[in-house]
Design a protein around this nucleic acid. Sequence first.
RNA 1: GUGGCUGUAGCUCAGCUCGGUUAGAGCACCAGGUUGUGGUCCUGGGGGUCGCGGGUUCAAAUCCCGUCAGCCACCCCA
Length: 447
Amino acid sequence: MSSPISTKPPSGMRDFLAPDVVRRRHVIAVVQRVYESFGFVPLETPTIENLATLLGKYGPEGDQLLYRVLHRREKLQRALAAGTATELDLADEGLRYDLTVPLARVVANHRDLPQFYKRYQIQPVWRADRPAKGRFREFWQCDVDVTGTASVVADAEVCGAVAEVLRELGFADFRILCNHRELLRALVAEAGIAPQQEALALIVLDKLDKVGADGVRTELAEKGVPAAQTDALLATLARAREPGQLDRFAVAEGALGKGARELQALFATAAAGPAGAHLTFDPSLARGLGYYTGPIFEIQVADLAGSLGGGGRYDGLIGMFGKQPIPAVGFSLGLERILLVMEERGMFPSLGIGPQVLLCRMEGVAEAAAIRTATALRAHGLRVELYPDATKLGKQLQYANTIAAPFAAILGGNEVAAGTVTLKDLAAGTQATLPPADVAARVLAAR
RNA sequence: GUGGCUGUAGCUCAGCUCGGUUAGAGCACCAGGUUGUGGUCCUGGGGGUCGCGGGUUCAAAUCCCGUCAGCCACCCCA
């Protein structure tokens, strides 16, 4: 009986049964509608990209998490025969890791796109990460991006779009944390931290909320950053959190002032849209992805350790494909994260899609007669399941309960002769024998 | 990548400490309780090489080692 083949899906990947699918579709429908209302148009790209497209865009951690697709046939045999094959020799393609890099490739490749290409994309991505709560190896992202402009309007619009999605889904308490890569780098440099330790410092700083100042001191000390520099950085960041500090940064020279002024502009502009009340300056927000250059964003809710989404400006990424540099900004919502919080908070409306009517066939009624009746009921707009066998009525009604159909329609010899069906309301226990049009009217009225 | 917890029927678990008939329960599933009426109830039934591999022993679900998988926290991210 038990099979030697595991029936579980691969680690970090899941099957979605009807109740899951219905909830996922519900969220996706809202995302799609809101994104389109902002003027974004859809894009779908292949599951698999060339490794050259993917590698070197996300930083070393990201490269490690890429699912690679093995060479086929002769190429693989040749690589293996060499005996010294490395990962790069064995694979030339990989599963997409996010939707931003494929977008960058598409924009670099299609020169006839609108100057301001506003696209949304809702597709799965894969990361060979260790699964945890709210983290999967296959998950869906809902991205909105604007390419071809460095205008703060684009930054404000992507923030507005995701904020409106969350608002329409019923979220009220989320924060969109904002920081700026250039501002952050200026603060790190100001603390005296060497440029080659900057990336390291940024990653550790991102943990400030979770591990606290002492945790950051310990971790940076282990990585060889002098304590005096760490203290200087922490002091600077603590000051940066004080109200009005962004305005003081804004009058500074160089990258510090530039970053601060760009954030000020973003806050001022986005305030006129749905994101306004949710934007929060967080000087310790760093974000791991390598390609961000300007403002960076992350959506936070109190009851989830991870984020609901993230994004930022990446003015250098499209240019990495060897064509002209094109500025871009985008935001990504994590479908599973949103679903997780909505499930935990009980935020879903009732979303039934199963059959409204189970059509029961009595013994002696021809299969064709049942098909004919089911077809008539369906033509009136009902979702109808036809019980396959003419078994005992009790068994058929029991099955109706099992699949949670609110009505049963009974087709016996009498009904066939009269051109009627007996409609039974399974919750109330009442029933009436009616022509199909009246059956449909009653079922539809019961919703 | 680090630390911890857990793997026994489709699902949730008991049994393990102190090895000993044929490994249990609830739910689910199937069949019956005669005619075209379900949810409750009663009776019966199918379904497990106790995650996998090795070791100790007369004897292992139970003890020991290894391994794989899942979950939680951290890290990172969506």
